[in-house]
């Protein structure tokens, strides 16, 4: 398993638009599980509604993890995504 922590800088946090893009990006790694954890609550990045339900806001710290055969590629893609969008 690979993981990183990230502090959200986007003023709106993980709102509908980035959540949708994130879920889409995570789906590209079908055999690898990508998760997002905030305050001990973990959801898969593909679980769009629950991901939005985490209410990740600006300043929150999240842990993003990837587990599976493509975890290296997935975690690299996620890091890039968070930096660019969140």
């Amino acid at each position: 398993m690979k993981q990183f922590t990230y502090t959200i800088t986007d003023p709106l946090g993980i709102h509908a638009r980035p959540a949708g893009l994130l879920a889409k990006a995570a789906k590209a790694y079908a055999d690898t599980t990508v998760t997002v954890t905030k305050d001990g609550n973990t959801v898969k990045a593909t679980q769009l509604m629950k991901l939005m339900g985490l209410t990740v806001k600006q300043g929150n710290v999240v842990t993003v993890a990837a587990d599976g055969p493509q975890e290296d590629a997935a975690i690299a893609a996620m890091e890039k995504f968070f930096k660019e969008n969140l």
């Binding site: 898969k44 679980q47 769009l48 509604m49």
Partner: peptide, 8 residues
């Protein structure tokens, strides 16, 4: 995406 949301 909501329509096919896995939890939903």
């Amino acid at each position: 995406m909501f329509v096919e949301d896995e939890d939903y």
